[in-house]
Deep mutational scan, measured.
Amino acid sequence: SLSVDNKKFWATVESSEHSFEVPIYAETLDEALELAEWQYVPAGFEVTRVRPCVAP
């Protein structure tokens, strides 16, 4: 099958004044980091952490 098993990760994104967490959907932690950097670094943010979303 061609289905992709995307998992939810939380990326911590920082600017000079703010820090916030955004959801990233990817297959692996490395891919989540790449996606977060691709989305947020060009906008002037720094991705400081990516972690798996742990269900309660």
Rank of each mutant, 00 (worst) to 15 (best):
A55K: 11
T28G: 05
W38N: 13
Y25T: 04
H18F: 00
E27V: 09
R49W: 12
Y25Q: 03
N6R: 10
T48Y: 02
F9N: 01
A11W: 02
I24T: 00
S16F: 10
A32F: 03
Y40N: 04
S15T: 08
K7P: 10
A43I: 09
W38G: 13
P56L: 13
A32D: 00
P42H: 09
Q39K: 10
R49I: 14
E17D: 12
V22I: 08
S1Y: 08
E31L: 13
F9G: 01
E46I: 15
W38H: 14
A11N: 01
D30C: 12
K8N: 05
A11Q: 01
A36I: 05
S19Y: 08
P23S: 07
Q39L: 15
V41F: 06
I24C: 05
S19F: 07
P52H: 08
G44N: 03
T48W: 03
L29G: 04
A26E: 01
Q39H: 10
K8T: 07
P23T: 09
A26M: 02
V47C: 04
G44I: 01
A32S: 01
A11R: 00
L2M: 10
D30A: 14
H18Y: 14
F45V: 02
A55E: 13
P42C: 09
H18L: 13
L33M: 11
S15P: 01
C53N: 08
H18G: 12
S19K: 12
V50Q: 00
S15F: 07
T12E: 02
A26I: 02
P42D: 07
V22R: 02
R51Y: 13
Q39W: 14
L29D: 03
V50E: 02
E17Q: 08
V50P: 02
T48Q: 04
L2Q: 11
E17G: 11
T48I: 14
S3G: 12
G44Q: 03
V47R: 00
Y40D: 02
R51A: 06
L33T: 09
R49D: 15
V50I: 13
D30N: 10
P52N: 05
G44H: 01
A26Y: 02
S1D: 13
A55F: 12
E27T: 14
R49A: 15
E46M: 12
E21Q: 08
N6T: 14
F20G: 01
L29Y: 08
S3W: 09
S19R: 11
L35T: 07
L29H: 06
V41C: 06
E27P: 10
D5L: 14
I24N: 00
A36E: 01
Y25S: 03
C53Y: 06
T28Y: 03
S16H: 10
D5R: 14
S1H: 09
A11V: 15
N6K: 15
E21G: 06
S15I: 05
S16M: 11
F9I: 01
A43Y: 14
E17N: 10
E21D: 10
P42A: 10
R49T: 15
T28C: 05
V54A: 13
C53G: 07
W38D: 10
S1W: 10
V13S: 02
T12R: 08
P52S: 08
P42Q: 08
T28R: 03
G44E: 02
V54C: 10
A43H: 12
V50A: 01
V13A: 02
E34M: 15
C53W: 06
A32N: 00
W10C: 15
V22M: 04
K8R: 08
E46D: 07
E31N: 05
K7A: 09
E27R: 11
P52C: 05
W10H: 03
V50N: 01
V13K: 00
A36C: 06
S3Y: 09
A11L: 06
P42L: 07
T12P: 01
Y40T: 05
E46W: 14
K7S: 06
S16Y: 09
C53T: 06
E34F: 14
V50Y: 02
S15G: 06
V4S: 12
S1N: 12
A11I: 12
V54M: 11
P56Q: 12
W10Y: 07
V22Q: 02
L2G: 11
F45Q: 01
E27D: 11
E27Q: 14
E21P: 01
R51D: 06
E21T: 08
S3I: 13
G44R: 01
S15Y: 06
S1P: 11
V41P: 05
L2I: 12
V47Q: 01
L35Q: 06
Y40F: 08
V47K: 00
C53L: 04
V4G: 12
L2Y: 09
Y25P: 02
R51Q: 08
H18T: 07
D5G: 15
L35H: 04
L35F: 09
W10T: 04
E46V: 15
T12F: 05
L33N: 04
V22F: 05
E21C: 08
S3K: 10
